[in-house]
Structures are given as C-alpha cells and as structure tokens.
Amino acid sequence: MTISAKSISLELGGKKILDNISMDVRPGEILSIIGPNGAGKTSLLNVLSGNIKSHNGNVSYNNTPLESISIQERAYIRSVMSQFQSIAFDYSVEDILQMGWLDHSHKDIKEDLSAFQNRVIKECDMENLIHQKFNTLSGGEQRRVHFARTLLQLWQPANTKDQNYLLLDEPFSNLDLVHKVKMMESIKAKASSGTGILMILHDLNLAYSFSNKILLLKNGRVIEQGETKKMLSARLLARAYETFISIDENPINIRYY
C-alpha cells in the first residue's frame, strides 16, 4: 500500500529532467522533496500524479500500475495542489471548493459533503472568505482555498476506506505565519489519519521540522533519501545546494498557536 516509483526517467526537449529515480510514498508518512531550483522536483510530482508520462520505469498506486487506473479513478486516490493559473470567470470561493467534490453515488452525499466542507472551512479558517469571489482574493488566500479543495477531493464515505495520497507543490508559499501553521496542522492530521503525503518544499527548516522522510534531489537524481534525522547533515545539503550550510538547533524559537 504505497505510491511506488521504480527507476523513473524523464527527458524533455533532449534534456534529462529525471534520471533513474526510485521512491515510495507510504501511508501516514510525510515525505518532503527538497533540492535546488531545476532539480526536477515538480516534474517528479507530475510523473507521480500521472500528468506526465515517464519514459522509463513505472509508477504504481497500492500495487496497481498507474496506467491501468482510469483518469476518473485516479481522482479518488490522490489529490494534488500545485501552482495555479488565474481563473477567467467570477467563481465564488464556495464554487471552487465544490470543484473538489467527487461523486460517490450514495444517498446522503450532498449532506455529508456539505458537513465535511463546513469542517474544512473552519479548520482552514476560511469563514470570511467563503462568499467572496475567488478572483478578488490575495495569492495566499487563493492557495488556502485550493488546499481546502484538495482536502475535499479526498473525502470518503464512512463505509469506504481506500488508501489515498496528498501531493503538494510548495503548499506554504505566500502564506502568513499563522496560516502556515494552520495548514501544517491540517497536513499532519491528514497524515495521522492514514493518508500518504508528499510535499515539495523550499524552506529547509520547515521540511526538517515536520516530515518523517526527506528526499534530496539534484539535477534529476536522488542524492540521498531517508528518515529525517539521518538526512540532517550539513555536508549532504552543502553538496546539493553547492553553498556553505550550517545547522544550529533553533537559537530563537518563535511559536504561534
């Protein structure tokens, strides 16, 4: 029961983007991908989500090869939050959230989804946004709405418990500190309920402070991956980012609750 990638390689326009990558996203685990710009982090996420087909290797979800899962069926087992384009029409925030509603063909689905949506709105602190037009929101607020939508996409009726996954590309960009912490809490809660989580992060402090595992990517290759503690090496990071890096244990610690 994992997302499992085996020897993935990807070339775009003659350039090697990903080179022989093998990795797993396990249930209940938070895996963060870090690495310098152009390392291939987003491409890796797109291959895992099925948006881009890798040239070699294969991706499987819960032991089923990705190609043999239909486009529709994939929507139930993984949701993705990535960088977004602007939206041409004046959808309300609620409309955007409802785009995450999948049809589960059971009788009280509308009530169940509405109830779950209200909980998510509260959890993400969005009560004041819900009736606004999406296009009038700030960049950070728009990201929070999209995050809430990806949570809604993973909703399951009480009688089903399929293993699902949440893939996040830079979820915290543009967020203020309070909402960053709130989103982190949501992600942690999602992980402890069994969802497997993969994140692309640029902030190394964030990545190390709340992921179970780290994958360090550079030039399309995995430099090292493993438990967060084992990955905490200044030499390793210096090799990836080609700059001097030092690690201190939190000299100043500002906490937000």
Binding site: S49, Q72, R74, V80, F84, Q85, Y91, M99
Partner: peptide, 17 residues
C-alpha cells in the same frame, strides 16, 4: 467545463479526460 477553469493539469487531476 467548470473543472477545466482550474487549468488543464488540475482538471485532469480531478478526473477529467
């Protein structure tokens, strides 16, 4: 068509062919 407004990659991720 509604889901497509999020962009093609997003619509695909929400199950749209």
């Amino acid at each position: 068509l509604d889901l497509l407004q999020l962009g093609e990659p997003e619509a695909f991720r929400l199950g749209v062919d």
